[in-house]
């Protein structure tokens, strides 16, 4: 059931990539949104995170914090590049 939804979403991702949403950025945003939805389904259902012990949620919150930190560093590094000030 979840598998069928995921397969359908894969089809949607492929189809949407051939639709032009105005800018490349918009296309990336749409595709990442669908991918995040799929990843959420995999995590919640297949990895049964929908109902898990509290300790595991704590580990994940901890991880999430560091991942956000990691991408935040990437974001900060942009300021070293003059082309992004345009």
């Amino acid at each position: 059931m979840v598998g069928a939804i995921l397969l359908a979403f894969t089809g949607i991702t492929v189809a949407l990539s051939y639709v032009h949403f105005g800018t490349q950025k918009a296309n990336i945003a749409v595709a990442m949104l669908v991918a995040t939805l799929k990843a959420g389904l995999v995590a919640a259902i297949f990895m049964h995170l929908a109902a898990e012990k509290r300790l595991i949620y704590r580990i994940l919150i901890f991880t999430g914090f560091f991942v956000l930190g990691l991408f935040w560093l990437t974001f900060l590094a942009w300021y070293d590049y003059p082309i992004f000030h345009r």
Partner: peptide, 11 residues
């Protein structure tokens, strides 16, 4: 892979 696929194949 769910992230790899769109990032490299589609976008």
């Amino acid at each position: 892979w769910i992230f790899v696929f769109p990032l490299f194949y589609l976008l």
